[in-house]
Amino acid sequence: MNGTTMTRGYVIIWAWLLLLMTLSLFASTLPVSRAAIVTLMFVVAAVKAVLVALHFMHLKLEQWLIYAIAILPVLLVLGLMVALFPDFVLAR
């Protein structure tokens, strides 16, 4: 792999991350509902996380096992959160 092109790729990702960060900072000034703003923020956060994982952590170059190790716990956390809803959110 050519070192210089890789480096340029990293700079681009970095620029994207900073852009997205700025976007989420100013999202609260958008003239839309609060729920939409919060949703937007977490979509942006997820995109940032995926960018870091795929490019900085080289997940896009890894074999399926590493993917599985990375994705399984994320699914489990989401499952845990869903299962906690009835007791702590819906009960209110």
Binding site: L76, P86, D87, L90
Partner: peptide, 18 residues
Amino acid sequence: SFIVWAHHMFVSGMDPRL
């Protein structure tokens, strides 16, 4: 095994829908 845990809590006062 990750989606059975609340069977330890049937009398804990958790939401009966679970």
